[in-house]
Amino acid sequence: MASNFWTSSHYKQLLDQEEVDVVQQLDKEKGITLEDFKLIKMHMANYIGRLAQNVKVRQRVVATAVAYMRRVYTKKSMTEYDPRILAPTCLYLASKAEESTVQARLLVFYTRKLYVDEKYRYEIKDILEMEMRILEALNYYLVVFHPYRALSQLLPDAGMTDATQICWGLVNDTYKMDLILIHPPHFIALACIYVASVLKDKENTAWFEELRVDMNVVKNIAMEILDFYDSQKMITDERTNAAMNKLPFRP
């Protein structure tokens, strides 16, 4: 449901990590490894974020778009659904779902500005076609819950409004991972608060205990976030480009 996460399609669609970390057969044949798969998705999340800055939409629209992109790739191959068109189209669709409609021609325009590589070239009609394919792939489930709301409710309660900026940034970065497909959003928010407490050296144990949530889950998510930051240092553009180059141009 639109307000109750526990009865929503989002909750019902949550997956286990093992289900998310599956490279589609068609992509495997192109030599895409699990690591490539994750890299490309992260690259696309960044792409969506950069485009969004140009067309000026809110962070929630970006978050919904990235969630759509990640959901599609749990079912469809990158060979068939070229991420270079899928990513902007996810932003296009999310902008409609989040009531901040962005015109397709603007996306085409800014993509040309951002990426000179001709593989990123596409036309309005490519977006419109892809929009329908995405709708189908998503099985028409479009409501996505995000950690932001929980975050803004939890922070004052935890007496950590001074950490709003850092928590918000942490939540944004979680979209570079698949967390939104795996965990309820308020757990992700809690994990970000947890990480922020550690970074700011703030003692919050009592507050977390009072919440009566499974702290193991929260801590595990927090560990994943920290691991992600560690591993990200090793990622180079060359590495990402090598992964992208395994994808066929215009399937």
């Binding site: 669709l93 409609k96 779902a97 329908m132």
Partner: peptide, 23 residues
Amino acid sequence: KQSKDGDGVSPTAIREIMLLREI
């Protein structure tokens, strides 16, 4: 109908599907 103006699926349709899919 698909609008001819390059606007893709109408936001009205998107809203309706989005809500009805959860209801």
